[in-house]
């Protein structure tokens, strides 16, 4: 009860330093995996929304409308509890009684991925629309196949244009992984809550969690800025 701040945040037997660091690792892992999944979904979503066929555009539009319009925490609940009910029913009817829950980390990553994918769809789509058509035409005129054009001309230029928007989405993905605490994933917020509860030091631990979020955000932000600068090099005079 009378431990000092150093002991409470330290790595000793009474300290919460170890669990908090581990939880920060879980936050970073969930955010990275979710963001990566979101990038894949975003590329698919953008392709759908840019497709010539109306049906495909409608599907893409439906995806971004739904997952940008529904609160993220609801998506998390829906995927986790809804998914667990479906799984339990399936297991029970297959002759395995009891309640089955889905793995929190995997479902969390999927939820974060699907939601950030909707935002990334817009980032990729608007970046593509800003490309210089003439440069794409020049590739066609050189006999490039569609795949080669995509790989050598369209993808690198789209990435460069989309990167600032993607950086913003990353920062919000990082914060929103804290929502995964509601499905029992021991990420930074949940671990801080546990520590705060058992030591009655909410100010200290929530404060520490806030600082750790800021540090992770700052470091990853710097990496993204460096990438941005690197990709922007050809456009500097």
């Amino acid at each position: 009860m009378n431990l000092g701040i150093i002991e409470l945040l330290g790595f000793g037997s009474q300290g919460w330093g170890g669990p908090l660091l581990k939880a920060a690792g879980v936050t970073l892992a969930a955010a990275s995996c979710g963001f990566f999944l979101g990038s894949l979904l975003g590329i698919c979503g953008a392709s759908l929304k840019l497709a010539r066929a109306g049906v495909l555009r409608t599907i893409g539009h439906f995806y971004t409308t739904v997952f940008r319009g529904v609160p993220e925490i609801l998506v998390v609940y829906l995927f986790y509890f809804g998914g667990s009910v479906v799984l339990t029913n399936a297991m029970n009817s297959g002759g395995f009684p009891g309640f089955y829950s889905l793995p929190a980390f995997a479902i969390g990553v999927i939820a974060v991925g699907v939601v950030s994918g909707a935002y990334q769809t817009e980032a990729f789509r608007s970046a593509f629309l800003r490309l210089d058509r003439g440069q794409i035409e020049a590739g066609t005129a050189c006999g490039m196949s569609k795949l080669l054009l995509l790989r050598r001309i369209i993808a690198p230029q789209t990435l460069r244009v989309a990167l600032p928007a993607l950086g913003n989405i990353w920062q919000s993905v990082l914060k929103e992984t804290s929502l995964l605490s509601v499905i029992g994933l021991t990420e930074l917020l949940r671990q801080a809550g546990t520590a705060a509860g058992s030591t009655r030091q909410p100010l200290l631990f929530y404060g520490a969690a806030a600082v750790m979020f800021l540090i992770i955000g700052r470091i990853t932000g710097l990496i993204l800025t460096r990438m941005e600068n690197h990709l922007a090099k050809p456009w500097r005079r």
């Binding site: 210089d132 003439g134 440069q135 035409e137 020049a138 590739g139 066609t140 005129a141 050189c142 006999g143 001309i153 690198p156 230029q157 460069r160 990709l231 050809p234 456009w235």
Partner: peptide, 17 residues
């Protein structure tokens, strides 16, 4: 055939990256 019939554009259209 396009590599045999090369095009030069009004706006150059070099690949900027």
């Amino acid at each position: 055939l396009r590599t045999q019939v090369a095009m030069v554009f009004q706006n150059f259209c070099l690949w900027s990256h």
